[in-house]
Deep mutational scan, measured.
Amino acid sequence: MQRVNMIMAESPGLITICLLGYLLSAECTVFLDHENANKILNRPKRYNSGKLEEFVQGNLERECMEEKCSFEEAREVFENTERTTEFWKQYVDGDQCESNPCLNGGSCKDDINSYECWCPFGFEGKNCELDVTCNIKNGRCEQFCKNSADNKVVCSCTEGYRLAENQKSCEPAVPFPCGRVSVSQTSKLTRAETVFPDVDYVNSTEAETILDNITQSTQSFNDFTRVVGGEDAKPGQFPWQVVLNGKVDAFCGGSIVNEKWIVTAAHCVETGVKITVVAGEHNIEETEHTEQKRNVIRIIPHHNYNAAINKYNHDIALLELDEPLVLNSYVTPICIADKEYTNIFLKFGSGYVSGWGRVFHKGRSALVLQYLRVPLVDRATCLRSTKFTIYNNMFCAGFHEGGRDSCQGDSGGPHVTEVEGTSFLTGIISWGEECAMKGKYGIYTKVSRYVNWIKEKTKLT
């Protein structure tokens, strides 16, 4: 034993070699072989497995989906700052455009905790909710729209109204504003409101030439003092309507412009014939205590009207009353817009006519005020429907199939267009061939041609 100890002390290297040989010859039971080890760690190889990531292109799944990435790591994937920024906006807080917040056709661009709407022409605001041009839906104005110097929408209202708090709607500024039905039992019968379409306001006024200088022999019209197929109006439903009495009662109609003036057809009036105007009328054979009678003290036909040349060209006249009318729910003026808007309103496509005229061709006159909704007829169809001249200051309205029309005794009465609950004068009943005849239409004086003249002559002093 002493000898062994001496050998170990003198030859430590020998001992180490012996131990190493023993270990190498022993069977290893701690580690699995290569094949079995792979069965336990069965993990798919990654895209760049075996390579240094710093030297390969980034992978979106590896960089940002398996674990949260930084902007720089995302930049490695896209290799483009702009594309990385677009991805980053949604990656950080989701897609803010998912709810489609942009209105009126706006395009949404996502941002971090926010979004941006790219608005089409005519709109602005956070969600493109603000109209900035009158060309689109009248700028959301209830009545009139004008573009300011910086191309912003400025709404306005006709006389007797003021802008509401929203700067879009119009509200009454006087007790009985024009064009409004205020009798409670008839307010439910107000005709369907007309909503502004998209309009090209630059070209809204037709490029028409008034044929002022045409000389033409007097034409022989049949029954051209021209509501057939209409309905009984309720008291106060058309408070701007008046009836004219002269040699015979209810020979023509008219509309209240203001307390002192009536507008009617020029062919209705004769110099030297006494005319009485009755406002607030409903049943011409009954006294309903809503009527107001006034005498006409002055007749002003349009300066281009000449019955000797043509009885229905420039067929418009103004009547001055001896005493002002007292405005109330049964006696209310009709609204008159400017030339541009009167023309736009007419193009809405349908209007209402009213009167006490004959209820059928050569038949009896109506006792109760009649009204009828009539569609506008395109000019080409209008011209083809008659052998008589249709001037540019006239328009056609009615039904091709016949059966409904204005008729004798309705002449001078109103053709009105309702705009968001307020009625505007767009025409004056003038003439036609018979009444409600198939293929024939009622012919009306186009008020847009005469609004400046009306307003100039009827100013209240």
Rank of each mutant, 00 (worst) to 15 (best):
T386W: 07
M6A: 15
F399V: 13
D198Y: 09
N127R: 09
Q185R: 10
G160M: 02
W356S: 03
N48H: 08
D322W: 01
K146L: 11
N138I: 05
I136S: 15
D223A: 10
T186G: 08
S423I: 06
K247V: 08
K362F: 05
S430P: 04
L130Q: 12
Q237L: 09
F238V: 07
F78G: 14
T381E: 09
T158D: 03
E231P: 09
N452K: 10
F238I: 06
P239Y: 01
I428C: 01
A164S: 06
I262L: 03
S156P: 00
A37C: 05
H267C: 03
K459H: 12
S430E: 04
I390F: 10
A366Q: 14
C396A: 01
H361P: 15
I17D: 01
I344D: 14
C157S: 00
T381A: 13
I299Y: 07
N328G: 10
V242S: 01
L52Q: 15
N80D: 15
L321R: 00
K260D: 02
H314D: 05
G409R: 09
K89S: 09
D410M: 13
D200N: 07
A308Q: 14
D212R: 10
R162T: 12
K446S: 09
I112F: 11
H282Y: 11
K457P: 01
A250S: 10
C141L: 00
R373Y: 07
V263E: 00
E116V: 14
G412L: 13
L244I: 06
V257H: 00
A9S: 13
E281Y: 08
P239G: 02
S25E: 04
F31H: 08
G160K: 01
Y115H: 06
G413Q: 08
K168A: 14
H314R: 02
E54V: 05
F78Q: 15
K459M: 15
V181G: 12
K247L: 03
L319Y: 02
F238E: 02
N222K: 09
G254V: 00
T458Q: 02
D150K: 08
S49H: 10
E61V: 06
W118Y: 08
R191I: 13
K137E: 10
N166K: 02
I454Q: 00
N127H: 14
F251G: 05
I112L: 15
N138C: 02
R358W: 07
G106K: 02
L41H: 14
E27P: 02
C117S: 02
M6S: 14
E171R: 08
R373Q: 15
S107E: 09
G236S: 04
E35C: 04
I40S: 05
G58H: 12
R379A: 07
G94A: 11
Y115E: 03
N38M: 07
I428V: 10
D212S: 07
C97Q: 02
E171M: 10
G21L: 15
K438Q: 14
V331K: 00
V451P: 01
Y441F: 06
I344Y: 14
N48P: 14
M437A: 09
G355N: 08
Y47V: 14
N310H: 10
T386L: 10
L60G: 13
I262C: 03
S448D: 14
R364E: 15
T458E: 00
C396R: 02
K247Y: 04
N222Y: 11
E35V: 13
Y330M: 07
E193G: 12
A366C: 06
F123P: 03
C157V: 01
E35N: 12
I210M: 06
F123Q: 06
G272T: 02
T186L: 08
G363I: 06
H415F: 15
L20M: 09
N100H: 14
N38D: 15
G272L: 03
A436P: 15
Q216M: 08
I136Q: 15
I336T: 03
N213M: 08
I40H: 15
G403M: 12
G398I: 03
N295R: 03
E53P: 11
A233T: 07
E418Y: 11
P235Q: 07
Q143E: 00
T271N: 06
D150F: 08
P101E: 03
T194P: 08
N38C: 04
Y115M: 03
V174H: 06
E76F: 11
C69Q: 04
E53K: 07
E420S: 14
Q96R: 15
I15W: 07
V326R: 09
C157D: 00
L19D: 02
T218S: 12
N452H: 12
Q408P: 08
H400C: 07
V269K: 02
A436D: 14
I309S: 07
R226Y: 14
E456W: 06
E159P: 06
E27N: 06
R226F: 07
K387V: 06
W356Q: 04
D200R: 11
A436S: 09
Y341V: 07
E420T: 13
L321N: 00
E401A: 13
G236V: 05
D378L: 04
V326D: 14
P44L: 10
H282E: 03
W240N: 00
S148R: 07
S49C: 04
D249H: 02
T426H: 02
Y115P: 03
C396H: 02
T16H: 09
E323I: 06
C435G: 05
T158A: 11
I210Y: 05
D198C: 06
Q219R: 07
L189S: 14
L32M: 14
F55A: 15
L319A: 06
V257E: 00
I136N: 13
G160W: 02
I316R: 01
T458R: 01
F71G: 14
S148H: 11
Y161P: 01
S70L: 09
E420M: 14
C128E: 03
N203G: 07
G403P: 13
R180N: 01
F87L: 05
T209F: 08
A265K: 01
V273K: 02
G357M: 14
K89R: 11
V374G: 02
V353E: 01
T389N: 13
Q90C: 07
P197A: 09
C134A: 03
E270H: 06
P414L: 12
A26W: 01
E456L: 09
N222D: 09
Y91I: 11
R226T: 12
I256W: 00
G50N: 14
T16V: 09
G351V: 01
S49L: 11
S385E: 10
T445C: 03
K89C: 06
V296C: 02
A307R: 12
H415L: 03
I454M: 07
Q185P: 14
K146C: 04
G230M: 10
G398Q: 06
R140V: 11
K311C: 03
W356N: 03
V416S: 05
E231Q: 08
N147T: 14
Y352G: 04
S182I: 08
I316Y: 01
D111P: 02
S255R: 00
T186W: 08
F224S: 14
S25R: 05
D223V: 08
I214P: 08
K137T: 11
W453M: 02
G58P: 14
L20C: 05
G230H: 12
V183I: 10
G432Q: 06
H282C: 05
S184E: 12
C108I: 01
K68G: 09
K39M: 13
R404L: 13
W88V: 13
F87G: 15
F399C: 07
P101D: 03
R162H: 10
N147Y: 06
S220N: 12
V243H: 05
G236N: 05
K347S: 13
T276S: 08
G106E: 02
H415P: 00
F55E: 15
Y115W: 08
T287N: 15
W261L: 01
A26C: 12
G357A: 14
V242Q: 01
D223K: 08
D110S: 15
I336E: 00
H289I: 09
C97R: 02
Y441Q: 03
K339W: 09
G363K: 13
